[in-house]
Amino acid sequence: MTHSAIIPRVSIQTEDFDLSTEVAQLRNGLPGVGAVCSFVGTVRDRNEGSSVSAMELEHYPGMTESSIEAMIDQAMDRFDILGARVIHRVGLLQPLDQIVLVAVISAHRGQSFQACEFLMDYLKSHAPFWKKEQTPEGARWVDARVSDDAASARWGLPAQLQTGG
């Protein structure tokens, strides 16, 4: 029994989030939960050899939410988990800011660990977000990483960086 009707599974927001609050809501009323695994992504002050003073996150409203919902559906199918919560911030962010939360609950730890990594790898290479960094050399779009494709390939997910357009 999960409680997806009570709290949303996916939130795209400009506001910050509180990990403890989110985990408490996710666990609420589910005595069968024995494991919570969460990942929080934060803004670094350096990338690709430059200092980063700020980061602007753009997304595709509508598709962002529906694609992450579909990823959570897949995670629920693949792993023995009881629920998941994803929050992704958009807009202007500074170094030290939180960007993304993935939290998963299950009866035992193995499935939560795996599902959390699966969701994060999937999101990185398939959810429609784009980062633009402010650096001393000017603003630049962040390039997609081959290593992110390799991470999602572990789960049998398609690569996004195939050659050609």
Binding site: P128, F129, V142
Partner: peptide
């Protein structure tokens, strides 16, 4: 229909 570069969220 949407056109965009490879995604870079997370």
């Amino acid at each position: 229909v949407a056109f965009f570069p490879p995604v870079t969220g997370g």
